[in-house]
């Protein structure tokens, strides 16, 4: 049971935090040091914005090609049907592969392929209760699936780090949730013969990134403490394709099932 290839997406995970707290993040430390795994800083060549980045990761298209720029367009929340490209799961399913994707956050609520799941906080978890619920419920659903099924590809994503870093960058709580994600990865990685762990972008304090993607003060008056950074996280196991940008993840997955 498990998956030939397991892809774990962690929205906004950044090496800046992981490297600084490697002594507490045992799984990340193992992934960085064990020879079975390869890890690198993946510097984005596109705007570090979650909606288009996740589509690029799983469609292999640039933002200009897939044209999914925002979660909301003209006051309408975008859905899967608004994005006119095939994702890797659509392509693999057509070739008879067994594929599932859980909580992929290119739309809100996040997208599920071939699996039912209702994301806590409708996929925009915004407080401790919802962050905990997301990590626990997504992990439970993923483990339940991977324990009972033999899949070719299983994709599972988490968005809590992104949301909490926006509000709490520089605070202790950020480390606390990296530790929770670290434990979560430890629970999942044994289910995949091959593995890709990817973040859609990194994170940093305001002004540190090349491009400021979000306003410091939002329209409802909330002050954001951090912003997206162009350096994303990439960790792989048994993946031959060289991954140098987000779209290469799609190519790497396709290559596995060639």
């Amino acid at each position: 049971m498990g998956a030939e290839l397991l892809v774990i997406g962690i929205d906004a995970a950044t090496w800046a935090i992981i490297d600084r707290h490697l002594d507490k993040l045992k799984t990340f430390k193992m992934l960085k040091t064990h020879k079975e795994y390869k890890s690198k800083v993946l510097t984005l060549d596109q705007k570090p914005y979650s909606a288009p980045c996740w589509v690029s990761i799983f469609s292999g298209k640039t933002e200009e090609e897939h044209r999914h720029h925002e979660f909301v367009v003209d006051n309408e929340i975008q859905t899967r049907d608004d994005i006119k490209v095939d994702f890797i799961w659509d392509i693999l399913k057509r070739t008879g592969k067994k594929v599932k994707a859980l909580n992929v956050p290119f739309i809100v609520p996040p997208y599920n392929f071939n699996i039912n799941f209702e994301a806590p906080g409708l996929g925009i978890p915004s407080n401790r209760e919802e962050w905990d619920a997301e990590i626990a419920e997504v992990t439970n659903r993923a483990i339940e699936t991977l324990r009972n099924e033999n899949l070719d590809l299983f994709v599972v994503c988490y968005v809590s780090l992104d949301k909490l870093q926006h509000f709490h960058w520089g605070e202790k709580i950020v480390e606390e949730y990296y530790e929770k994600i670290d434990e979560t990865i430890d629970k999942l990685i044994s289910f995949g013969k091959k593995l890709i762990i990817i973040s859609d972008h990194g994170f940093c304090a305001f002004g540190e990134a090349k491009i400021q993607t979000l306003p410091r003060i939002t329209k409802d008056g909330t002050e954001l403490k951090g912003d997206h950074h162009e350096n994303a996280v990439l960790i792989t196991k048994n993946i031959k394709t060289e991954i140098n940008n987000l779209r290469d993840v799609f190519k790497a997955i396709k290559e596995v099932f060639k």
């Binding site: 979660f71 909301v72 929340i77 609520p109 906080g121 925009i124 926006h166 306003p215 939002t218 909330t222």
Partner: peptide, 16 residues
């Protein structure tokens, strides 16, 4: 209701 909730959350995160 969901749409209003999502919009409000996205606004608070600066996505809108």
């Amino acid at each position: 209701k969901e749409k209003a909730y999502i919009m409000q959350k996205l606004r608070s995160l600066g996505y809108m």
